[in-house]
Amino acid sequence: MTYLSFIKTEFLVLWRRKQDVFNALLFFIIVVVLFPLGVNPSSDFLAPAADGIIWCATVLAILMAIEGMFKEDYTDGSLEQLVISGLSLSLLMLLKTTAQWLAVLLPLLLMMPLLAEMLYLPDGSFWVLIVTLVIGTPSLFLIGSIGAALTVSLKQGAMLVMLLMLPFYLPVIIFATSAVRAAQLGLPYLGLLAMLLAVFLLSLVIAPFMTAIAIKASTN
């Protein structure tokens, strides 16, 4: 096994299992639709809340997608093969998380113009929203991979992953939605984007390492 063959196979598996990615995206759309139907469909409510709704739905969809990230590898024994492959397990985990991130984020970004329109997202903040998604979601995937790795041996791990990981997602949600709101008010928002980037870099340093520890403990 080499890093290259690993990442190729990861993308191939993602492609064969594209229904899983679609499910996460459909879940995302349903959560978004809940707000106009359940709370208030008027633009007075939706316009100021749009960025918050989109971010909360994104977080939930990502948690749903990430929970099963290692499940199949665990049951078919390929996780064990990764552990003893002689390659760096942290790097393999980073590659796998990157593949998952790309598979979910790219279609999500494609849906954004439509959703922004449906939720009356105020003009001028759309591109800031896109930027927060691009630099904010990697942290969610990196941190979430730790939770997925810790619970991989459990049959019903989804709820536990949510409980474990949601508190860690708070800073990302706060900085991202604040940046969008600052942009709407014409305030400087680059500092907030820098905070998001800082959280991303910190997760990049720590998360693959922790995920590797968790995977190694789980495959015992």
Binding site: I143, I146, L150, L164, P167, F168, L170, P171, I174, F175, M195, V199, L202, I206, M210, I213, A214, A217, S218
Partner: peptide, 19 residues
């Protein structure tokens, strides 16, 4: 598992508090 999540929590707690 619990050790991992505690360490991750310790690193994250200041960030959460600040945010």
């Amino acid at each position: 598992a619990v050790a991992v999540i505690s360490v991750v929590g310790l690193i994250n707690l200041p960030i959460i508090k600040y945010s």
